[in-house]
Amino acid sequence: MACEWSAKLDAYVDGELSSSESTALAAHLRECTSCATYALGLVQMKRSIAAAGKRYQPGAEFRGKIQKTIGSKRRRDGSWYWKIVAIPAALVLILSVTVNLYVNREKARRERVYSELTDLHVATLASGSPVDVVSTDRHTVKPWFQGKIPFSFNLPELQGTDFSLVGGRVTYLAQSPGAHLIYRLRQHEISVFIFQDRGDGTAALASTPISRLSFTVESWTKNGLRYFVVGDVGAQDIESLSKLLRDAG
């Protein structure tokens, strides 16, 4: 692989490139098959290692032992209530740490969902046949999903907009099937993912566009469905496609 970009592909899939470099590399991937294949391989390898590496679980007994080792005495003697009254500062500290931890966990969970979706987006575009149903006509694409996924959805009329529909394919997020639609805006591809909203891990996702690496992601729920729009275009473009989808759904 003699391509000048090849040395940056690892950092790219690890999300370690600056956003300008990342955008440039994303554009390059659309043109260079060898880099795209390599990047796809890396993404797959990252996923396999993540799955295979979560292997060992500590026993409950050992957990108890560690808790005992590090647990503060206050907790164990069970009479910590009055101390919280006496030392409100301690409560504030604990609360702030707990809230911090919670926020971090939520953030981590959100990051995982977004990371999986951007991986899907990149992997799909890098593959030889990104879509299984190729059509610019929403009336062809929508019925194609019938019987393949357990729900139905509406797609917007794009006449008079800069967006065009490329096609769609069935995809999976956290083991649940959904629709992956690809739209084109100028030279950019944008992925739209639609899943059933199960009110679980995705409930706290942002409804305004957020930037993740060089990608912008927007997500919302409507009529029991959870939508994600992912692409390397600007927040404004993501927002206008989202609005079209919202109005149609």
């Binding site: 679980q57 957990r63 590090i70 301690a90 500290l93 740490v97 707990t98 931890l101």
Partner: peptide, 15 residues
């Protein structure tokens, strides 16, 4: 930082 803080920070990393 206190022992309680340590517990709050360190225990989630246990697994």
């Amino acid at each position: 930082l206190s022992a309680a803080t340590f517990e709050e920070l360190a225990l989630p990393l246990f697994e």
